[in-house]
């Protein structure tokens, strides 16, 4: 661990760096150790993915001896479920749902969008930190840009469409949401599916020549009724930025 740490240039909990001799440790040994560590980590991640825990994102940090990041909890149940092929009709239902949902938001039909949510919906965008690899991917569920339920989302929607003094919403911003890379897995609960998708959101305001950009991975739990109707029960939005590039308050993902 100390050697690995020295390669990432901050020593971990071993007292002051003994500068003389340690520099003479053959580089090849360092790399061997590094590679072994890395390959172990990758195997663990791969196994976890196969077992259906979504991605490495949800795993606790490998090194708990350092200041541990609080792992993000999705509320998405451990699945163990198989991945659905893109040709599966259920995959198609869920893809249609996600596309329609994005269109409702893009078209400023926010009230209808609320109908896409279950009453017990959990909607979160955890903050992210820049941390060394050994401390995980930086997501920390103890603070969230969004930490919402059906009621608070309703409040945000009301602000977005009804209020004359919501100045960030009027004139309406020009927003486009691209939904891609959908992976659907079964869960232990019949009718519930874990859906992972990528989202790229572009927002333009006034006469600006440029766009505010937000890209994220979304880990959703979708509830699908017998008639194929889908609703969103959980959404975890994992953004690709630590300090968001613009004010994205009240911009639904």
């Amino acid at each position: 661990m100390a050697l690995l740490a020295s390669l990432v240039h901050v020593n971990v909990g071993r007292g002051p760096l003994g500068v003389g001799g340690k520099w003479r440790v053959p580089v090849i040994i360092r790399w061997l150790r590094l590679n072994r560590k890395a390959s172990t980590a990758m195997t663990t991640m791969h196994t976890a993915t196969k077992a259906g825990t979504q991605t490495g994102t949800l795993m606790p940090p490998a090194d708990t001896t350092t200041k541990a990041a609080s792992p993000v909890r999705t509320g998405t149940p451990k699945t163990g479920g198989a991945r659905l092929k893109a040709s599966d009709p259920i995959y198609g239902d869920i893809l249609d749902f996600l596309i329609d949902e994005a269109a409702l938001l893009d078209d400023d039909r926010h009230v209808e969008w609320l109908d896409c949510l279950t009453d017990d919906v959990v909607y979160k965008m955890p903050v992210r930190k820049t941390v060394y690899r050994r401390n995980g991917d930086g997501f920390d569920g103890r603070n969230s840009h969004w930490d919402d339920n059906r009621q608070s989302l309703g409040l945000r929607v009301k602000r977005s469409v009804d209020l004359p003094s919501a100045f960030d919403r009027d004139p309406a911003p020009h927003i486009r949401r691209m939904v891609t890379n959908l992976i659907v897995r079964k869960t232990e609960t019949p009718g519930e599916y874990a859906a992972m998708s990528y989202m790229l959101l572009l927002r333009n305001r006034f006469d600006a020549p440029t766009y505010d950009i937000l890209s994220a991975k979304r880990e959703d739990l979708i509830r699908r009724g017998g008639d194929g109707t889908c609703k969103l029960a959980r959404r975890l939005i994992l953004v690709d930025q630590t300090a968001l590039g613009a004010v994205f308050i009240n911009v639904f993902m």
Partner: peptide, 15 residues
């Protein structure tokens, strides 16, 4: 010296 925004380090070594 520090590329991460938090952590624990006994010393700070320049890369």
């Amino acid at each position: 010296l520090c590329a991460a925004e938090e952590g624990n380090a006994a010393s700070f070594k320049c890369p």
